[in-house]
Nucleic acid binder design. Structure first.
Lengths: 203, 203
DNA sequence: TCTTATTGACTAACTAGTCAGTCATTAATG
DNA sequence: CATTAATGACTGACTAGTTAGTCAATAAGA
């Protein structure tokens, strides 16, 4: 491995190690020496690439947020012609970006955890990801309701209900990792069916 | 204020202060001196009542959990004779214990936050509160389905979907306190209607 | 040889936990 | 009732340990 190659890879390796350590212990309880050890460097090296602990943390969290934000664009093309299709697309998107892998999981934990120290991180996440999606979903639901394709239910004004199952699944996994694994697709299909048809019998 | 009266009130005052500081900064980033200052004592006094920082934290969290656990008993008497009544009772209970006040809110944040350092706390919360409730809800849903009062939907095997809205509301408030306030009752009624009737039009 | 990534020993600051001492209150004594 | 002794809640200065951040020295590649 040449020195140049190492230099190109170091920042990523350090971010990876930082993710593991920060998501295990949170910002304050994580030692830079531990991150360094996990990345197979020493603390000094970290300071070559990141000016301090806070910058390292923020960079790491932003790294987690990037792929999420990129996908929002695609969703904006959605047309409200079929209730199930719209709902399925949104829920797929939400599950994929909230409850899909450990990185999503830990992103939420970190945002919750450090919202006091890094308030602008959750604010960014809101303006770049959550809010645009909610607004688009609101539009679609309104349009579907106007066309008579869905009921004019009180839930229509609370779009967060649609993302509820994915968020709750995430929290469940974070809080109770010892409880059995839940299949993400099954969870989503169940939620979708519940939202479309409700529990009361249909004739 | 006599010395004896002070002695009776100190532990509670310290717990109160500990709640404020810990929920603001988490375990590691909270200074005992700050807790002491908030409780209008000095650090030494804290050690008169609590043997160390971890014990103080655990005592404080358990204090938050007690009222929640006490209420579970009442729910166990529920009979599955009416779908809406059952669902409303459960959701009322869940919203009341998950999203009602700041203490519920912060309890969840703290459990999420410190699940690595204090795993037995979330485990306790699970066995004493979450799991009993889920089992009871499962029973009720099964019975309602057997009686034909609700559809045999896939959601029936995923009882966490029912608590989803309350959990999601909680997360929403923790993550995005800057977003406008959401009325808890309205939220619950919307969720209830969504769960019972679904979005698709009914004839 | 020269450049540059990396090291690791160092410091400066911070904080959990300790403990000898203070002082207001209460109880005992004359 | 007045004085003294005992109590125990509380203090705050101190120690010991930890960790973010620095920088002169080193080693490895070009």
């Amino acid at each position: 491995m040449t020195a140049r190659r190492r230099k190109a890879e170091r920042p990523g390796e350090i971010l990876e190690a930082a993710f593991e350590e920060f998501s295990k212990n949170g910002f304050a309880a994580t030692r830079l020496d531990d991150i360094a050890a996990r990345a197979n460097v020493t603390k000094g090296t970290i300071y070559v690439y990141y000016s301090n602990k806070e910058v390292l943390f923020e960079t790491m969290v932003r790294e987690l947020m990037t792929p999420v934000i990129a996908e929002v664009e695609a969703l904006m093309a959605m047309e409200a012609t079929d209730a199930e299709a719209v709902l399925r697309a949104f829920m797929k998107f939400i599950y994929a970006n909230v409850a899909a892998d450990r990185q999503c999981l830990e992103l939420m934990r970190l945002l919750l955890l450090e919202s006091e120290r890094f308030p602008h991180l959750s604010h960014e996440h809101f303006t770049q990801f959550v809010n645009p999606m909610q607004l688009k979903l609101q539009d679609c639901l309104n349009e579907l309701a106007d066309k008579g394709l869905i009921r004019k239910a009180p839930a229509l004004s609370l779009t967060d209900l649609i993302s509820g199952p994915a968020v709750a699944l995430n929290v469940w996994r974070l809080l109770f990792p010892f409880a059995g694994a839940i299949d993400t697709d099954e969870h989503m299909e169940a939620a979708l069916d519940l939202f479309l048809n409700g529990l009361l019998p249909r004739d």
